[in-house]
C-alpha cells in the first residue's frame, strides 16, 4: 500500500514519542473474525478482523448503527451488562489473551482496558475522590499513594493546573470539558494499558474538543487508544489508523492519511466525502 500512498515522512518527534513504553507497533488488540449479537440471533457485527497496535490512536468511524460502539464495548466486555448479548463468532485477544476465555476475570480486564464515555460522567464527589475512585475500590487506602496517583493522573490529563487548589470541590462544578478530562484522569489513575473512548467530545464545545484532542495526542505516548467518533475531522486530527464500519462490517482499515486521501473502497470514499443517503 505504501507505494500508492501519498509520500509521507513521519516527523522525528512522532518516532521518538513512545519513549518509556514498549516500542510502538506491536499488536496489542487482535480482533479475529468477530461477530456479535445482542439477542443471540441478529448479528450487529459481522466477521470483523483487525489489529490495533501499541501506542497508536485507532479511530472507528461509520454511520450510526454500524457497530463501531458495540465493537468498542466488546473490548472491555461492557456488553456483558446486557444479559443476552454475546460474541457469536471469533476471538478478541488483548495482550495475547482471549478476553472471552472463562479464565479471564472481567474485573482485571477492565483495569487494563479503561473507558471514557460519550457523556462525561464524573461522580457527584470531590475532584480528588473521583480520581481516587478506581484505586479505592481496589482497596488502596494509603493516603500518600492516593495523593500521588491523583496528582499524576490530573497532570497527565492536563487538569492539574486548573484544579490543584480545589481538589475537594465537587467534580460536577467543573465545565464540560474539564469534567471529561476529569473522567480521563479517573481512567488513567488505574493505569490501564488501553483506553477506549466512546465519542468523548460529542457533548463538548469546539475549544474543549481541541483540548481533549490535544490530550489524546499526548496520551498516545503511554497508552494505546481506540476512539469512536462521529466527527471525521476529529479522526483525521488525532488518529494514526482509521477503521470504517458499515452495517456491522469492517469495510476498510488503514493509515488515517490514506483513508482520507485515497481510500481503497468506494463505500469508504462515499461516507467520508458525504455522499451517503
Amino acid at each position: 500500500m505504501s507505494e500508492t500512498q501519498m509520500d509521507k515522512t513521519l516527523p522525528a518527534s512522532e518516532q521518538t514519542s513512545g519513549s518509556e513504553a514498549a516500542p510502538r507497533g506491536d499488536v496489542v488488540i487482535e480482533i479475529d473474525d468477530v461477530s456479535f449479537a445482542y439477542d443471540g440471533k441478529k448479528e450487529v457485527i459481522r466477521n470483523v478482523s483487525m489489529d490495533v497496535r501499541r501506542n497508536e490512536v485507532t479511530a472507528f468511524i461509520g454511520p450510526s448503527g454500524c457497530g463501531k460502539t458495540t465493537l468498542l464495548r466488546c473490548l472491555n466486555r461492557m456488553n456483558d451488562l446486557i444479559p443476552t448479548a454475546a460474541i457469536t463468532n471469533g476471538e478478541i485477544r488483548i495482550l495475547d489473551t482471549n478476553i472471552y476465555d472463562p479464565a479471564v476475570d472481567v474485573i482485571e480486564l477492565r483495569k487494563h482496558v479503561g473507558m471514557v464515555f460519550q457523556k462525561y460522567n464524573p461522580f457527584p464527589k470531590s475532584i480528588y475522590e473521583n480520581v481516587a475512585y478506581g484505586l479505592r475500590i481496589q482497596g488502596i487506602r494509603n493516603k500518600a499513594v492516593l495523593d500521588q496517583a491523583v496528582e499524576e493522573s490530573l497532570i497527565a490529563a492536563g487538569l492539574w493546573e486548573e484544579v490543584k487548589d480545589r481538589l475537594d470541590a465537587s467534580g460536577l462544578g467543573l465545565s464540560g470539558g474539564q469534567q471529561q478530562r476529569l473522567c480521563i484522569a479517573r481512567t488513567i489513575a488505574v493505569q490501564p494499558k488501553i483506553i477506549l473512548m466512546d465519542e468523548p467530545c460529542s457533548a463538548l464545545d469546539p475549544i474543549s474538543t481541541t483540548k481533549i484532542e490535544d490530550l489524546i495526542t499526548q496520551l498516545k505516548a503511554h497508552f494505546t487508544i481506540v476512539i469512536v467518533t462521529h466527527n471525521m475531522q476529529q479522526a483525521t486530527r488525532v488518529s494514526d489508523k482509521t477503521a470504517f464500519f458499515y452495517l456491522g462490517e469492517l469495510i476498510e482499515m488503514d493509515e488515517t492519511t490514506r483513508i482520507f486521501t485515497n481510500p481503497s473502497k468506494r463505500q469508504t470514499e462515499d461516507y467520508i466525502s458525504g455522499r451517503f443517503g
Binding site: Q233, T236, I259, F260, T261, N262, P263, I272, S273
Partner: peptide
C-alpha cells in the same frame, strides 16, 4: 466551508 476529503479534496 465543506472540508472536502479524499477525491473531493484532490
Amino acid at each position: 466551508r465543506f472540508n472536502p476529503v479524499a477525491s473531493d479534496l484532490r
